[in-house]
Design a protein around this nucleic acid. Structure first.
Ligand code: FES
Ligand code: FES
Lengths: 141, 141
DNA sequence: TCTAAACTTGACCATTTTAGTCAGGTATGT
DNA sequence: ACATACCTGACTAAAATGGTCAAGTTTAGA
C-alpha cells in the first residue's frame, strides 16, 4: 500500500499556492521551482484541480492560479479525489452482488478492508489545507 | 492509494488457515480452492510468511501449513509486512538528512504523511487474526 | 521400496500503472 | 505584437503487479 506522487504533488502544490496567492495569482512555473515538481506534470494536476473547482485560473501575462475557496474549506479528501487518488481497499464493487472471489458471499476479509477505508477517509476528511499551513518548513533533524 | 492483491491474499489465506488447521496441517491446494487464489501465487506468499515465522510447514504427503502462533498473537501488521506490503506514505527516507525534494528541509507535507502513516499502522496493530475469525462469511446484501 | 502428495525455489512474463515528456496549441496583459 | 502563462492530448520509459512455468526436494503411506 502506498500513496502515489500525483496525490502528494497535488497537496504540496496547493500548500505552496495557499502561502503565496495572497496578492497575485501564482504561476505554475514558480511552484515548479519552489517545490521541485516538473512543470508539465503540474499542468496535468492543476487541470484536474480546476475541473473540480479547487483552484481558479487567470490566463495571459501575470496569470496563474488562485484557490477558489478558503484553505479551511478545502479538505484533503477533496484534493485527493480530484486527482483520482482514491482510497480503494475492498476489491469487490460494493454495489455488486458478488464478492471479490466471484462467489455470492463476501470474502472473509471484506469487512476488514471496509473498516480500514472508513478509518483512512476519516483522517482525510478532518484535515484541511489550513492545518498544513501551520507547520512551516522545518529542518530535517 | 490502494492495497495490492498480495496483502489481501495473505490475509484471506491466513483466515482460512486459522479456521481449518485445528487438527491437521492445511494444504495450499485446499486454500487455493476455497478462496479462489492461484496455487502458484499462494506458494510465493507462503514462502514469505514462513520466512517471517507466521506459519510452519510440514512436508510430504498429508503435509501443509499451520499457524505458528495463536490467532490473537498474529497482528495484521505482522502479516502485511511479511509479504512486503508496507505502508509507505512519506516519500523521503526518514533517516536521510534530505527531504523528498532533495533539499535540506522537509517538504511541506512531510508531517502530514507521517501522521497518516501512524494512523494506519495503529489500525493494523490493533487488529489480529482472531478479530477476523468472528465474522463468518456473510451474504452480500 | 515406490510413488504421489505437498512443499520449495527461482526464473520468467504479460499487463497495467506511474510519472512523467513533448508538441502543439490558446488567451491576455502590457 | 509578443512574451508569459495556461491548456490539451498524445506519447513513453520504467516500475510494479499478478501472476505462470519448470524443476526440483521431502516424506507419508501402500
Ligand atoms: S473485498 Fe469485498 S468480497 Fe472481498
Ligand atoms: S515526505 Fe519527507 S520530505 Fe517530503
Amino acid at each position: 500500500m502506498k500513496l502515489t506522487s500525483k496525490g502528494r504533488y497535488a497537496v504540496m502544490a496547493l500548500v505552496d499556492l495557499a502561502r503565496f496567492d495572497t496578492i497575485n495569482p501564482v504561476s505554475l512555473r514558480d511552484i515548479s521551482l519552489r517545490q521541485g515538481i516538473s512543470l508539465d506534470y503540474l499542468e496535468q494536476i492543476f487541470s484536474k484541480l480546476k475541473r473540480n473547482q479547487i483552484v481558479k485560473s487567470t490566463r495571459g501575462n501575470q496569470g496563474g492560479y488562485v484557490l477558489s475557496k478558503k484553505p479551511n474549506e478545502i479538505k484533503l479528501t477533496n484534493i485527493l479525489s480530484a486527482v483520482d487518488e482514491k482510497v480503494k481497499t475492498v476489491q469487490c464493487k460494493k454495489e455488486s452482488k458478488k464478492g471479490c472471489n466471484g462467489k455470492a458471499t463476501k470474502c472473509v476479509t471484506h469487512n476488514l478492508w471496509d473498516e480500514l477505508e472508513t478509518h483512512i477517509n476519516t483522517f482525510f476528511e478532518k484535515k484541511s489545507l489550513q492545518d498544513l499551513l501551520k507547520n512551516k518548513s522545518e529542518r530535517v533533524n
